[in-house]
Nucleic acid binder design. Structure first.
Lengths: 212, 212
DNA sequence: CGTATCCGATACAGGAATGTATCCGCTAAG
DNA sequence: CTTAGCGGATACATTCCTGTATCGGATACG
């Protein structure tokens, strides 16, 4: 019964952690994890380093908390939007429909640029640290499972079949989506960069996914 | 006619640069660019910081030189191996053949883990710095163009057609390959991790690429 | 073999980030 | 309203890294 850290979870504490995560989301995305000092995060949140060290022990711990929060929001958002995005009945099949729908789902509510950068940061860290690799897998799996359910549901409602098992399908879509987003950032897209991304992605998916 | 840096390219100098790049390849891959000090790179190469500052002005400059070198080796290796990897005549089509061949080409001669990590490091940097973004694009394009030529050649020899334009096809393959390699690293694969990667990739490609 | 030159080693100063220890003021509970 | 204690600010010592300036020795060439 030896609790290592019996820190009470006061409402004040929760608010501070929240603000620190908000700050980390921005600063980590803009400068990168390693290039960001603890002080910069705290300052951006309107605190000093004292607040940080009172709530987290390392930058990585903060990043992990942040990723968990984002994932939960993300999956929740997905679950909500599913019905609206898959309106097609069991009627006639339009190949692009599923492509566009999945792309719309993946688009999500968050800042794409920041999300992509932080995701990349997290992945790179996980590729080196087995500890974080496990956390990253949990993260990825939670998303993947949700998507598999969604796609399975939509496909079965359409009364047709994918040419690939659903999980592989989802992995392909996620990988291509990620690549497309990064490509658009690298191209220095202004305005709403996601528009062209989704056009391109839908085109690829139409060719690739073709229902049977 | 004002040369900014008329540094003579002595043989000794070239050797030192080479050793520094070798060291950077390892240390950057293991610790990440930002987490690595100039001293660590120099030391790992058997030098002190003096040698580094005599040859490069920033870590980024070293990384860029490194990536250029790796790309050149990479493309050269590809060009050499093409004939051996595409032995199939205009005869009967085996769908998996092109998938396995492309996978073998992408595998290349280098350390996969390190290559993937450094590539990720470079990409992440490019996503933030427009300067590096351009360099990254050059890098990516050089590889992509080579692959397009290779695939075009192989497909035309087979007397069939891809269900996707070649460039999109290549992008899909590269993106999926990258994803597969990262996935295998994250899974903590021991031994030869590329074996399972290529099996999985070939399976996906078989389903996706199907010649017409 | 001798030598001028180039290149990497060494020394130094400055700056910045980290983690801890301590303190005070705010907050939430009664 | 009062108070106990939590949470964030402040101060400090330490460590590490950077960039430059200078020097001595190896190297390539005649």
């Amino acid at each position: 019964m030896s609790e290592t850290e019996p820190r009470p979870d006061s409402p004040r504490r929760a608010r501070t952690r929240e603000r620190l995560m908000d700050a980390a989301f921005e600063v980590f995305a803009e400068q990168g994890l390693a290039a960001t000092s603890v002080e910069q995060v705290a300052e951006h949140a309107g605190f000093t380093r004292g607040a940080f060290y009172s709530n987290f022990s390392t930058k990585e711990e903060l990043l992990l908390a942040l990723m968990t929060r984002e994932r939960d929001r993300w999956v929740a958002s997905l679950s909500e939007r599913v019905p609206a995005v898959f309106p097609f009945a069991a009627g006639p099949p339009i190949e692009a429909e599923i492509g566009a729908a999945v792309a719309a789902l993946l688009a999500g509510p968050t800042n794409h640029r920041h999300a992509a950068l932080i995701q990349g940061e997290f992945r790179l860290l996980a590729l080196r640290d087995p500890e974080l690799a496990r956390a990253f897998e949990v993260h990825r799996m939670a998303l993947e499972d949700s998507l598999v359910d969604i796609v399975d549901d939509a496909v079965s409602r359409s009364g047709r079949r994918l040419r690939l098992d659903t999980r592989s399908m989802v992995r392909v879509v996620v990988a291509l989506h990620q690549d497309a987003v990064e490509r658009s950032i690298l191209a220095g897209a202004e305005g709403d960069p996601m528009e062209s991304v989704h056009l391109e992605l839908a085109r690829l998916l139409t060719a690739i996914t073709e229902l049977r």
